[in-house]
């Protein structure tokens, strides 16, 4: 056997050269929670990317139905976008308020975020209802199926976010700024910002590119 064998103990690996930085041990709970939630958000983005992909594949499959440019209303979308971007800012304000344990600014920030979210949802709901009433529902064509699911999936997330937001406010009201409540608040803020980022994608891919076609 012409193999060079290293002798000695198991970890006498020749690669162990230089200083090894010792791992300090388990991370604190706040880090762990935030990290786990990040991982969840990444998986959520993967899910969205499937709907984006489906939209991209089916966008031209209008089955003699309307094209994107015939049904999108730029003005509504602009208002929606402004609402959501603003709400991200107010959500950030609420997070900061929670961190410094200021109830007034927390409630204010959260309330404004909630209202903006609801306005967004209302506009989206009206857009959907209007399309359906004109006969352009999701079963009209594969393009509309993909459109409704992508935008609707985001809308569902925003709805869930609003529900979460209200629960968060109730929790702060009942429990105060406890460590576990603050951790949840941090996750909520991450979630809300992520929805914002996804909306930027929806806005660009669906409405901006779509209205040109």
């Amino acid at each position: 056997m012409s193999m060079t064998a290293t002798v000695g103990r198991a970890h006498a690996d020749p690669h162990h050269i230089g200083v090894v930085v010792e791992h300090p041990g388990p991370a604190p709970k706040r880090t762990v929670t935030a990290y786990g939630f990040w991982v969840f958000l990444l998986s959520d983005i993967v899910m969205f990317s499937c709907f984006f992909a489906a939209y991209a594949v089916l966008v031209s499959q209008t089955a003699d139905g309307p094209k994107g440019s015939e049904i999108f209303e730029q003005r509504n979308v602009a208002i929606e976008t402004v609402c959501l971007l603003l709400s991200s800012f107010t959500c950030g304000m609420a997070s900061i308020a929670a961190d410094v344990r200021n109830r007034f600014w927390f409630y204010l920030g959260m309330t404004v975020t909630c209202v903006l979210g609801l306005i967004f949802l209302a506009i989206e709901f009206r857009e959907f209802a209007d399309l359906v009433s004109r006969g352009y529902g999701p079963s009209r064509s594969a393009f509309l199926s993909a459109f409704f699911s992508l935008v609707g999936c985001h809308g569902l997330h925003v709805s869930a976010g609003v529900l979460w937001l209200l629960t968060m406010m109730a929790q702060v009201f009942a429990k105060g700024f406890r460590a576990d409540v603050l951790r949840r608040m941090m996750c909520f803020a991450l979630f809300w910002h992520a929805l914002d980022i996804i909306w930027v994608g929806v806005f660009s891919v669906v409405y901006l590119l779509g209205s040109g076609v």
């Binding site: 499959q61 209008t62 089955a63 999701p138 079963s139 009209r140 064509s141 594969a142 199926s145 409704f148």
Partner: peptide, 12 residues
């Protein structure tokens, strides 16, 4: 009644 994978209406 969506049309993601149906034979009809442009499903794929």
């Amino acid at each position: 009644g969506f049309h993601f994978f149906t034979n009809e209406a442009g499903g794929n």
